[in-house]
């Protein structure tokens, strides 16, 4: 009686082990498929133009003249004003476009989650529903707003009201990060609100009894406890703005080539008829370097259980 049961159990366990290894195996397959093109790009970035065109990248080790020439070229000033300036411009856009919306959205998310005011729900729904506005449709109106402002001539009186001043922003990095910051706000508020509204209520009540006002609760409790979600959103927002091409091209465009971020410069590196196509490989890796640094710098904040020990046992 017991022997077959044991054997069945053994088979069951083997089957179970096989099945349970499927997700891990599938993940590895996906990782390899995803990583291969990047790997090829990386390999090619050390090869000259003729090798890149004539032999596949996995024959890398047969090449005799592997060099850092591609990197030297893209970082030098010969092509398109140089990628170094482009990287600096990218930072000038991505840093404010990350920090400013997070700071503002954290305040807003706290208010929506824990402060009582009239119309709270509707304002929140309105804010979040702005997620549905596609950035592309706003490009031209925004450009007009930045360059000329918004003016309305009142009928009959003939007076012109300036609703939004002419800030003359076209051709500046400010125009780019302002746009990014604005369009990041709904998602940022939504994400942070989800997290902050889930913090235990008792902590806030206890702080109120301890004599804290909303600002003190925000600074001393909400911010430190929200570090995981702030870091997560910071990484995404930095990636999006760092890798943005469209907005930078529209807002800076032909007005000021020296303000262009790295993405636009890399796109232009290939040159007419793709003459310098081989440089794209090195350019792409210069571009990818910084987000990777940011990711590894912030990933230690993705610690689980930051709330452990707060409430309950």
């Amino acid at each position: 009686m017991s022997a077959p049961t044991v054997r069945a159990g053994g088979v069951g366990r083997a089957v179970y082990r096989t099945i349970s290894s499927i997700p891990t195996g599938a993940l590895w397959v996906i990782v390899v498929i995803w990583a291969l093109p990047t790997l090829g790009l990386f390999a090619n970035s050390f090869r000259g133009p003729s090798e890149q065109r004539t032999t596949p990248w996995w024959l890398l080790l047969r090449d005799e003249n592997l060099s850092l020439d591609n990197y030297a070229t893209v970082l030098g000033t010969d092509v398109q004003g140089g990628l170094v300036q482009g990287v600096i411009n990218s930072f000038a856009i991505a840093l404010p476009a990350t920090v400013i919306p997070i700071a503002m959205a954290a305040f807003a998310a706290y208010a929506f989650a824990w402060m009582d005011f009239k119309g709270r729900e509707w304002i929140f729904i309105g804010t979040v529903s702005l997620l549905a506005v596609p950035l592309q449709t706003a490009l031209i109106p925004l450009l007009q707003l930045y360059n000329g402002g918004a003016n309305q001539t009142l009928p009959f009186i003939g007076k012109t009201l300036s609703i939004f001043p002419d800030l003359d922003l076209t051709g500046t990095t400010t125009a780019v990060w302002l746009t990014h910051a604005g369009f990041a706000m709904p998602l940022a508020i939504f994400l942070l609100h989800n997290f902050i509204s889930g913090l235990p209520k008792d902590i806030f009540e206890s702080a109120r009894i301890d004599g804290a006002d909303h600002f003190q609760i925000f600074v001393r409790l909400v911010l430190p406890l929200s570090i995981p979600v702030l870091a997560a959103f910071a990484i995404f927002q930095f990636l999006w703005t760092w890798n943005d091409y469209l907005i930078a091209l529209t807002m800076i465009g032909p007005f000021a080539p020296d303000k262009m971020p790295a993405t636009v410069i890399i796109a232009a590196i290939a040159g007419d008829f793709g003459r310098y196509e081989h440089l794209l490989t090195a350019g792409a890796f210069v571009q990818a370097f910084f987000p990777i640094v940011v990711f590894f710098a912030l990933q230690k904040y993705f610690v689980r259980g930051i709330l452990a020990g707060s409430v309950k046992g």
Binding site: P200, D202, I203, E205, S206, A207, R208, I209, D210, G211, A212, D213, R220, L221, P224, L225, I306, L307, A308, G309, S310, V311, K312
Partner: peptide
Amino acid sequence: PKERDIAMVFQSYALYPHMSVADNMGFA
């Protein structure tokens, strides 16, 4: 609550998880 000058102990304790015991006690 602040003006009432009372202290409350919660069922869940409601300790501030990111602060040390000393900071928790000295917060008010």
